[in-house]
Design a protein around this nucleic acid. Structure first.
Lengths: 343, 343
DNA sequence: CTGAAAGCGCTTACAG
DNA sequence: CTGAAAGCGCTTACAG
């Protein structure tokens, strides 16, 4: 409650006085491309160094309208795909002189609305919505505020929003091809949350291709991208008389829970009794304990495309929104094809 | 490059005009505790609503010196402990009306210095250094700028820095007690990075207690908090004639790699051939595939203590730094004690 | 309770 | 290239 004054930071005026130049000159010395003589800049820099001066970014933002802050809205970090992406986002933006403000939001619309207000208050230059859907009303609000939004790993029918995803429909199809080619016929699908485009698209691609092969799924159930739910569904699926011999799971995160349940709770062998295919290819999928066959969403490629798209729209707000679908290859591992080398 | 104008956001002046009051009145209406009549506030709020006005936080920051932004500096997000903590930090600060700016930094001093400059430019109200060490010179720079710093999961001899850790020395000791009580005698320790306080403290506690039990470790090697390194060390340790029958690993993240190597590469049984104890108790440690005995660092407790400490120092910069050590209980699971219920 | 005014630390036309 | 000045959108004494 007390207000002790930690000696105030030096301002451009202090530097100007010390360097014997005008305050404008100091500002110019710190503005790339501004017209200052070499001599002036040198004097300014020397004085700044002595005083420990650094320009106040916030004051600059007030004038330029550019905060060099990008907001990343994310719903959960327990699915390893997102921390991996966050790390890459953070590094990519840092390299561009931008910084990432993280907002956690559930997928509830009021919650997203509230978070959105908060981030608009900070005059962020752009918004990345990762794993979060956004209503048209909310999207419109960002556009009105002149803040470009790009969806990461989610797409929307609303044309105004840029969206970067993997090719989820094709990815789902690859999972179907793979399981059928392995001779599996009692195939079930634990989908990603059907409230998300990723959940729906992967399911659509998977079921369409299964159908093309003349195979009817024994079950299609919503895993909600939740470990617990996936676990319960696995139990239920395996309790019936027609136990599946293959499971396509809408995310690696759920697939790990499915495998745990199959092996340690139900005593089934993977892949012998049940083959499992996931989606994402998070690092953990490659760990020997799971060795999970999965559809790879390249976080590198998706993050790079997202950053590029957002920056392009920040530089030119009139640019048309982009909808990119990154290729997602199947990565075959031990959860579908028995390995000889490991026990 | 073009500069199309997305219609500018309404300012307090616009609202004032519409509400028929002064600009000061608008400001007061949005300042909790300011003296405004109910009637005035109502008029202002109505006008603000109609115009879609929200106060510009940055302009406010320029005056108050409080940005309500907290910087979180983190070295890596692959160890699940950190994303879990980040999620909790973000939610806790959001609840307080603060926001988290994420900075990734390696542990290299120049890198930290660079990142620190960046975050000081944003006038952040406080800094949390998670998994990152900081030199005294750098710490001093923050203090000079009047920005409180608290270390999360790392401590420093420098008294000026608040630090929140688990009781790593006691935690290490518990791991030793447990393994010895199990009858293990050929015990090795893959330590956390010895450049970190956590790595050193856990080792110290572990070795001291081992010694108290009259047991000499068969090996003590630095795992660097790295999966790859842990894997190679595991191979090397098990190649010798005196294969360890127990391993204390400085973090769960490394322990998973150790278990994978033991089981899938070396064909050893856990815990029968080798017992494994980790540190952290990340969610994954409880998953059946690992079922890892470990020392629990409560992310909830540590984050809460960190937030509380940082907020206290933001409110009163003259407050003395705090050094908290959160109790870290041993959680016994299947990687040291065979479970009957699971296969 | 209310308004006019100064000022937070900068950028950027405008003259020179 | 350089400086004096206006102004970004607010908060906050200061009078009334």
């Amino acid at each position: 409650m007390s207000k002790p004054l930690p000696k105030p930071s030096p301002t451009s005026l202090d530097v100007a006085a010390r360097a014997g130049v005008s305050q404008s000159a100091v500002s110019r010395a710190f503005t790339p491309g501004a017209s200052v003589s070499k001599a002036t800049r040198a004097k300014v820099m020397a004085a700044a160094e002595e005083l420990g001066y650094r320009p106040n970014v916030l004051a600059r933002t007030l004038i330029t309208g550019r905060s060099r802050i990008v907001a990343l809205v994310v719903a959960y970090l327990d699915n390893q795909f997102y921390p991996v992406a966050l790390e890459k986002f953070s590094k990519a933006f840092q390299a561009l002189g931008y910084h990432v403000l993280v907002f956690m939001a559930s997928n509830a619309d009021e919650d997203v609305a509230h978070v959105l207000d908060g981030l608009l208050d900070y005059q962020v230059d752009g918004v990345i919505m990762a794993s979060v859907s956004i209503s048209n009303r909310l999207a419109a609000r960002c556009e009105t505020a002149g803040v470009p939004v790009v969806l990461f790993n989610r797409r929307q029918d609303d044309e105004r929003l840029s969206a970067i995803t993997s090719d989820n429909v094709a990815g789902g199809a690859k999972a179907a091809d793979h399981l059928v080619s392995l001779g599996r016929r009692r195939i079930a699908h634990v989908t990603g949350w059907s409230g998300s485009s990723t959940g729906r698209d992967r399911r659509e691609g998977f079921l369409a291709r299964l159908d093309a092969h003349g195979v009817a799924p024994v079950a299609v159930v919503d895993g909600m991208y939740d470990r617990e739910v996936a676990q319960q569904l696995t139990r239920a699926l395996c309790a019936g008389p027609e136990r599946p011999d293959a499971l396509f799971v809408g995310s690696d995160h759920m697939a790990f829970a499915v495998m745990d349940t199959l092996r340690f709770e139900l005593g089934l062998r993977v892949p012998d009794d049940v083959a499992v295919v996931g989606y994402d290819d998070v690092p953990m999928a490659g760990w020997p304990a799971y060795d999970l066959t999965t559809v790879r969403q390249s976080a590198d490629a998706m993050v790079a495309a997202t950053v590029e798209t957002l920056m392009a729209r920040i530089d030119d707000p009139s640019m048309a929104p982009r909808h990119l679908r990154i290729d997602a290859p199947l990565v075959v591992r031990g959860s579908t094809v028995k390995r000889e080398t490991t026990r």
